[in-house]
Amino acid sequence: MAPCFSIIVPAYNVEPYLTPCIESVLAQSFGDFEAIVVDDGSTDGTPAVCDKLAQRDDRVVVIHKPNGGLSSARNAGTARARGTYIVYLDGDDWIRDKRLLERCLNAFSGRDVDVLFFDAVKFDEEENVFYRSTLRMEEVFLHFEKRDMDSVSTQLMSSDSFPVAAWKKAYARELLLDDAGELRCPFDENLSYSEDIEWTFRALSRARRVGYVSGSPIVYRLRADSSSLTSTKTLSLKRFSDQIRSIAMMYDRRFDQGWRSETVRAIEGYASYQFYVSLFVTLRLSEGDVEQGRNLLRQHVEWAAKGIGTKAKLSYVVFSVFGYRATPHILGALRQLTILARKLMPVRCARFDGEQSEARGNQ
């Protein structure tokens, strides 16, 4: 009998992290699942850890394959999945909510829901601290009654809160696999990084109604050796170019996915937001790669003018005047001023309120 959930865990050289990751799955209050661990040609002790976990619990299924990258591993795991619902979890992350699958099942059941969104907290391994997500998903879902895919996508993208990560969602099987078990929406194996961006929009274009699971049930590990876009280390040109390519694939297909016009506009706004983020990121490229990074952005300069809202329009004005080199520095300075103003304003307001209260007390 097929399990209710298939949890797909790509694993490449995650020997120190894989056991706690899978243990967080095995600890789920709802036990009708399979955990498909895909060893993607690891060169450390990961393969042995995989086999040990499979011996420990027959719900753990292991696939050993030659190294092909994250997209290849996810495709292999998805093709093997038998569950009614599919969840992705990276091998160095973990589930902190023991009721996540139970809550997902309740949200799926009887509500014609195709996909569930959820958020994560970040764990900085180097600093040994946890961070809240900066996305505003919960706010959108709490205050926005519509639950069709177009409306939710538009709201999330308009608030810079769209979760592109594949592992921030649970999916109904039919979105990803046909009746014969063939992949309907494979990850692009030519992308080594940022594959989630374009894949997510392809996958979700098939969805009708969506839901939300609150509480940030996943922990996303920021590893000490990370060179992700959110780290402070020098970034490789390959990672940067894959990010741009993935955004471009999403953007170029925006009219082909059946999205409503307002969602297409939101996708354009999202591409614009990523254009300016990428401008900042060019500052983290090695000195010899900076100009190549800017040249990649020049190929997609139309994104710069597609922003939505006052902040986006201001960014475009600055970019139009100062160009690729100066804009990230200017926008960075403006951002720091905004942060400083927000820190000062509550103090002034609190002082004013206190003075007012004291004056009323003396009357």
Rank of each mutant, 00 (worst) to 15 (best):
S241I: 01
F280Q: 13
R221G: 03
F255Y: 09
I330F: 08
G288W: 00
I267N: 00
I339Y: 13
M249H: 03
F275R: 06
D289W: 00
I330C: 11
Y276D: 09
I308C: 07
S226N: 00
D289E: 10
E302L: 14
A266E: 04
W259N: 03
H329Y: 15
F255M: 11
L279A: 11
A248W: 01
Y273R: 14
K238R: 10
S241Y: 00
A248F: 03
R335E: 15
D256I: 06
V318S: 09
H329E: 07
Y273G: 04
L235D: 01
A341Q: 15
V277C: 09
T230D: 05
R254G: 05
S286E: 12
R342G: 15
F255A: 15
R284W: 04
S227D: 09
A304F: 07
V317I: 15
G293W: 01
V301K: 11
P328K: 08
T263S: 08
I308V: 14
R245F: 02
W259T: 04
V301I: 14
L334F: 12
T310D: 10
Y270R: 08
L279Y: 07
I267C: 05
R284F: 06
M249V: 07
S246A: 06
T338L: 12
Q243I: 00
D242H: 06
V301P: 01
V317Q: 12
R294Q: 12
D289L: 03
L331E: 14
L237R: 02
G332H: 13
E262M: 09
V290Y: 01
G293Y: 02
L334V: 12
